[in-house]
Write a protein that binds this DNA or RNA. Sequence first.
RNA 1: GGUCGGAUGGCCGAGCGGCUAGGCAGAGGUCUGCAAAACCUUCUACACCGGUUCGAAUCCGGUUCCGACCUCCA
Length: 491
Amino acid sequence: MSELKLYNTLGRNIQNFQSQIPKKVGMYVCGPTVYGPPHLGHVRGPIVFDVLRRFLKYQGYKVRFVRNITDVGHLVGDADEGEDKLQKQAKIEQLEPMEVAQSYTDQYNWAMDQLNVQRPSIEPKASGHIIEQIEMIQTIMDKGFAYEVNGSVYFDVMAYSIEHKYGELSGRNTDDLIAGAGNESRSLEGQDEKKSPNDFALWKRATPEHIMQWTSPWGKGYPGWHIECSAMSAKYLGESFDIHGGGMDLLFPHHECEIAQSKTAHNHQLARYWVHHNMITINGQKMAKSLNNGIKVTELFEGNHSLLSRGFGPKTLRFFVLQAHYRGTLDFSEEALIASEKGMKRLESAIGIIKNLKVSDESTIEIGDVKSAIFDALNDDLNTPIVIAQLFELAKRIQIVNDGKEKINSVIRDEIGQLMNEVYNDILGMPITSNESSNNNLDEIMSLVTDIRTSAKNEKNYALSDLIRDRLRAAGITLMDSKEGTTWKID
RNA sequence: GGUCGGAUGGCCGAGCGGCUAGGCAGAGGUCUGCAAAACCUUCUACACCGGUUCGAAUCCGGUUCCGACCUCCA
């Protein structure tokens, strides 16, 4: 089997993956800011990194997967004038800020469970790591890379730039940033306190009405936008670890700042592989809270949205996401979702007939080529669309055998079953639903009903047979007639 | 304005020098009392203009359009 290769944003090329410690991987992924219900945009990253995590595990790695919860709240855009997001929501809802954060955290985790995204090994909260963040800020200050002004602490990008390259990840240079900064009118709070427009806050002085604030060596305040990830990743994964993941929109400034903070505090690189997934777009535009074009996960599941005529299951959403490569944008539409859903069902119906395939002594089909194509694709920067295409190829071969055009022996049949299970279920994280009903009573009843209908059909009493079919359909059960008899499924 | 990505058939999406994925939709067919489902077969592409090459969707240059980031965001 070939080696895993990943596109590393740090270096902007495909690189062979090698873990720092043999057979162990430390992985940090930026989690949600819990100030609103989960929407479609929140979904792609977790699914992508879940597949990466599952694939690493499949290859025998022990993975420690850390995904944070940002519950401290950051400054919001122009309309909200420096008010803490969580505080703002709290006022609206008349709740404790932590109650709001907890509620959205629960909603987020519920959505992740629905999507079959495995829970992180550790899910640290920013609010629970204020001490670690303060300590890290202090270290950065002690080393001369940060300064205090009026109870706020800023990172000194100029001082950092003497020995380091601020912009190594995002490909920006500080001059361009300054040129760009003056371009539009952005009157961020505290801009004038900074030595350079490039400097970013490590600690922010809190105004009295700020609910979420903590005591620090610089007075009451709250941590800056980027320090939590640096502090918490170091605590749980070490000062240098293997993979740091996140959305492309976090590349700058968030990840760039994390690198600067960690390099100055710890004297070595933060993560060795930076993996960024692209956005889900809607009508070609990214979906974001700030653009107000988001579809909530619950709206998608329930079909309760102007762009949807009905609901779509979490599995469909997961399949939809995995049908595109993680580094490209993925354009959302109901039409595309329907396409994924139908394809997924077709694939799964093929999976469902594997165990019923008639075996011969010999096999006229092989699957070695498909198997190697699948693992080559996974190793090639996690090319899940090709993996899925190969699974369809496998489905095709299953059907050909089922139609009696080719033969299969029990060895190959079991191999197909195992491959499907490993790839589709274990690695892609698509749970294979069993066709067998867990309800024996229902089986008995349906068996009776279909028998009645079959005898009605035999007597050419089509009025009765169609009535049964229509009534069952209304109840959510679809009957399918074939030569072998009538089968049924619950929609 | 700066930095970085894109433009593939009706839609979603792979591919990254020759073998021209895959899914959905469309068309035809098998099956069927009729349906549905399932299965089989099949038609539509590489934004535009040059160049390199025996050969380009794929490499190079230019043009047009689109997006992301530079301000919280997955």
